[in-house]
């Protein structure tokens, strides 16, 4: 996988990638290692912003912005709110009997992630384009061989995909993945009504 291949800024992109990756992982480690809960939740924010930066490097601006809006702007604020309501914030949480199940769950999640990562086709669109005009064999998005005359058309498609991701995401959400979209909407609505029912004065 090459990041930002085809631009003059490959070195800069690679440097940014490593800096972002390192700070994301260090922040994630700090989240689990720090005793002070408030600082830990602040590091969670840093880690999530780092993931958003990763999305930008992968040219998924929409995902990056949604990551910031939802995980940083909403989820983290909620977590910090909960932390402020907790006693003994600076001492952190003492260990309890749930250690073992938590560890097993974390390992299972890690296994799932590794499986998905190894089985995903990571090739970027431009990797499927010829590196130079000498190679005659072109491959389209479905992997079928296409003629050299369509190279320009494919290149045009790549540019369009990158410059306008939002309508594509929206179109997919409301067509191919409409069931997941509707399920998430119903779940959120149920949570909303549940929250109101919980705090309502009787």
């Amino acid at each position: 996988m090459t990041l930002g291949a085809g631009t003059e800024a490959t070195f800069a992109t690679t440097a940014v990638f490593w800096i972002t990756a390192a700070s994301t992982i260090i922040a994630a480690l700090a989240v689990v290692q720090l005793r002070n809960l408030f600082r830990a939740s602040l590091f969670l924010v840093v880690s999530l912003v780092g993931v958003a930066a990763m999305f930008i490097l992968l040219r998924a601006e929409f995902l990056a912005v949604v990551q910031i809006l939802i995980y940083v702007g909403a989820v983290s604020v909620l977590i910090i709110f909960a932390v402020l309501m907790t006693r003994d914030v600076t001492d952190g949480s003492p260990s309890n009997r749930l250690r073992l199940p938590a560890g097993v769950l974390a390992l299972l999640f890690l296994a799932c992630s590794v499986f998905v990562i190894l089985n995903t086709d990571w090739a970027l669109l431009e990797d499927r384009l010829p590196a130079d005009s000498a190679s005659k064999q072109l491959v389209d998005l479905s992997g079928n061989a296409i003629g050299a005359d369509r190279a320009a058309a494919v290149e045009q498609e790549v540019v369009e995909v990158y410059s306008n991701t939002v309508p594509r995401v929206a179109g997919l959400l409301l067509s191919d993945y409409v069931l997941a979209f509707e399920a998430a909407s119903v779940l959120l609505l149920a949570a909303l009504i549940g929250a109101i029912a919980l705090v309502r004065e009787r």
Binding site: E61, V65, I68, L69, V72, G73, V77
Partner: peptide
Amino acid sequence: NVGVLFILGITGLNT
């Protein structure tokens, strides 16, 4: 191409 969302997300950070 996601300027408006970006503004919403970033201004949320001042919290």
